[in-house]
Write a protein that binds this DNA or RNA. Structure first.
Lengths: 202, 202
DNA sequence: ATTACTAACTTTCGAGTAT
DNA sequence: TATACTCGAAAGTTAGTAA
């Protein structure tokens, strides 16, 4: 397998030997990876052809980028490209509830809405860029969960704006960024769903 | 943890939350990693300070380099720097036994000895550069195991030489390269133990 | 607060096989 | 030859605690 696009012809016992596990476990591993949609298989007379799916390659790349981020000590900021989406439309409600706490943390009173951005590809984990945390709190009988935030620059075709990215601690790994801003960016810059923007972190 | 040299202050329950496992398992993981010499710990009042050891960082780097090799489709050859060592001194004996088979495979009759080279740092797995295999065989009651080989260039300060690297399939992962050559390289170039050389593969 | 032991409980593994 | 199922054994996980 010289290229990541290649198919690999391997039998379950060869894989077992290579991994120093039994043929049975190797067979089971392959079938689990297939079940998770990470690889595709096709039976051959002797052995089977195995190749990564798009999803599998993305997972590998995510792991790779996380390691890269850790091992190569770059001062370079992280720039992630993504597509503007509508999210769940709850942004406005939550920002309203968190607004006064946000103001204390980030220094401005937020626009009642979020810009949701879905990254186009795998990217390293951004947790470590966290600048601060808003502790969980109650209003009446409703509990609002802990949320981290970090400064980011949102970059469009002909504009850019300093904003904050919020990272609710509970709903980890939806992989959609929620951006808090001073004003309505959709109106200010004429942004609409599907537009490509960059998020510069750090 | 912004740098790989940093210590991380974390409690076993924080780690458990982060990994979505129990506090007990997080504690066990840390203690296993410590047992394997991959991390160092020191108890703090609240939590513990954790940092990677040299060995741990090397393991991470090896994983990283393997992924890099797979994901970034470089045609660049792999160059690994290492130190000449004496190995176990068995080289001469084994080369003698494999000599006629080696001649058929690599096209020249090998010098009865190997140059052993110990890589200075982590490097990607070189299995995929294998050019051919010498099947296991018997001589009298002695069995000689399967061995793979690949062409490499050994590069010293003021010289270089085309050689072959042999990869005995049984004794995987000693992480010392054994080099087969046309003549006695130690004599030819005045190489001695501890000298730095480069191995160019692919 | 911690870390980490013990004792259940749960999951994973692989030898024996079926196909 | 293959792959892959079953099921008893081995390994991993965690609730309950001790320190």
């Amino acid at each position: 397998m010289k290229s990541k696009e290649d198919k690999l012809s391997i039998s379950s016992s060869e894989l077992g030997d290579y991994m120093r596990i039994s043929q049975q476990s190797a067979s089971r591993y392959l079938s689990e990876l297939e079940g998770k949609g990470l690889i595709e298989r096709s039976r051959e007379g002797k052995g089977q052809l195995v190749k990564f799916t798009e999803k599998g390659l993305n997972l590998l790349e995510e792991i790779y980028l996380n390691l890269q981020d850790f091992i190569e000590e770059k001062g370079k900021p992280l720039v992630i490209e993504g597509k503007v989406t509508s999210g769940l439309g709850e942004g406005a409600y939550y920002v309203r509830e968190y607004a006064d706490k946000l103001q204390k943390s980030i220094g401005f009173f937020p626009f009642y809405g979020t810009l949701n951005i879905k990254p186009l590809k795998a990217h390293p984990n951004i947790d470590k860029y966290t600048a601060g945390t808003i502790r969980s709190f109650k209003k009446g009988d409703r509990t609002f969960g802990e949320t981290e935030y970090m400064p980011v620059k949102i970059i469009g075709d002909e504009w850019e704006e300093d904003c904050y990215l919020i990272l609710p601690k509970r709903t980890h790994h939806i992989d959609e960024f929620e951006i808090i801003s001073r004003s309505n960016l959709r109106k200010k810059f004429g942004i609409k769903d599907g537009d490509l923007v960059k998020v510069r972190i750090g």
